[in-house]
Amino acid sequence: MDGSGEREQVDGACVTVHRVEFSIEWPPWTVAAYLIPGDEPILVDAGVPGETGEAELVDGLADHGYAPDDLAHLLLTHPHSDHLGQVPALREAGVTVYAARQTLDRLRRDEAALETGVRETARAVGLDEDTAEAQVDRALDSLRRNRRLLPPDEVDIGFAFGESVDVGSRSVTPLHTPGHQADHAAFALTLGDERVLFSGDVLVEPFRSAALNVGLDRGADDAVREYYRAYDALDGRPFDRVYPGHGPVFDTFDEVLDASRERLDEMVADVFEAVPENEAASAVAVTEARGKRLDPPAALLDTIGALGYLATSGRIVVDVTDGVRRYRRSGRD
């Protein structure tokens, strides 16, 4: 299902939620934005940066009879570059930009504090000095890039989680759904007689996005616990249709939520199995024992988050020596 035929009935008029796809260089190879037509058209997310992304935005909108300056509002799920990429072009076109207040605060982060946090965490998880410095550079580059794409002091409306916000004539409720990203928002609203969710990367079929959360910063070991928090925030909500940032549109909200939680459970179990029984191992060593690559760091961040979750539940024990956290099983299954 590509989203091109999702229809809303309003006073007898038929409105279509359009999907605009952008190319990315990693599986699943595309990222989606969504256009909600109306008197004040809304775009959810903004695709990838650069000239190719701008061309895909223009062409994707044109496929449905729109141009960037026809749009009135832009809702952003989270500050990753494949969802922020065309914010500058849309701001230039006069679109009103909405982002979470917590996202804006994070974008104002002091670079020296970020550098210290990443260097400290990199050491704690067992990365060597050269790799740690590369991760510091990666984090700083990411912060600077995201600030260029989404200057926090130039965002029109910073919304609070859980409080409805009027976006033109529509009432939208941003739900705090962390784990993949610490300030991730999923947008709940009613279109016609359907209760819909624009889920960004928190709920995708047929896979689970990595528990990146804060990246390799202080608090990296909270990522999996935060992901479970996101699933709990969604649980029991009656959505008829979900528009994700990747993968197909789906109308099986409960089934996909259950499957996503199971995938997270399976990853946590995999990490537990990789923790030694009689000796302690760093997060890097546990990631390698899982047969995962350290770069890109998605699998390492999953591992760090799972270890934090397992330690909180008492299933593993943490020993700290010379600033390095090492993990061993506690004897509790």
Rank of each mutant, 00 (worst) to 15 (best):
N146P: 08
R195P: 02
P151H: 07
N213V: 09
A185L: 04
P151W: 03
A211K: 05
V196D: 08
G200A: 08
S199F: 07
S171P: 03
N213F: 15
N213W: 14
R145N: 12
R195E: 15
D183L: 07
P178A: 11
S209W: 14
V155D: 00
R144H: 11
A185S: 15
S169N: 10
D166E: 13
D130Y: 10
L175C: 07
D217N: 15
H176F: 02
R208E: 14
H180L: 06
L216D: 01
G162D: 09
L175S: 04
V165E: 00
H176V: 08
V165Y: 00
V214R: 08
L191N: 02
R218Q: 13
L216R: 01
L175F: 06
G179A: 10
R144E: 15
A124W: 04
A139F: 04
H184Q: 14
A210F: 12
D201F: 13
T121C: 09
L212I: 15
F207T: 13
V202R: 00
F161A: 05
P151K: 05
P178I: 08
D156L: 06
L143C: 03
H180P: 03
G192Y: 05
A160F: 07
E120C: 09
D156R: 09
L216Q: 01
I157A: 07
S199I: 05
V165H: 00
R195T: 14
F207Y: 15
H180I: 04
E133T: 12
G158M: 06
R208F: 12
E163C: 06
V125P: 02
R218M: 10
T190M: 05
D128G: 13
T177E: 05
H180S: 11
L140T: 02
E194P: 04
V196L: 07
T131R: 15
F207E: 11
A188P: 01
L149Y: 02
L140W: 01
L143P: 01
D130L: 13
D153L: 09
L203H: 04
V136S: 04
D217Q: 14
L216C: 08
V202E: 06
V155E: 00
D130W: 10
V196E: 08
G192D: 05
R145D: 04
A134I: 05
F159M: 03
E163K: 11
E163L: 11
A182Q: 13
T177S: 07
P151C: 10
R123I: 12
D153S: 13
E205I: 03
V172M: 03
L127Y: 05
S164D: 12
A211E: 11
G200S: 07
F198Q: 02
E120Q: 12
G200Q: 05
D193K: 11
H184W: 08
R195I: 10
G179M: 04
G200V: 01
T121R: 09
E163H: 10
V172Y: 00
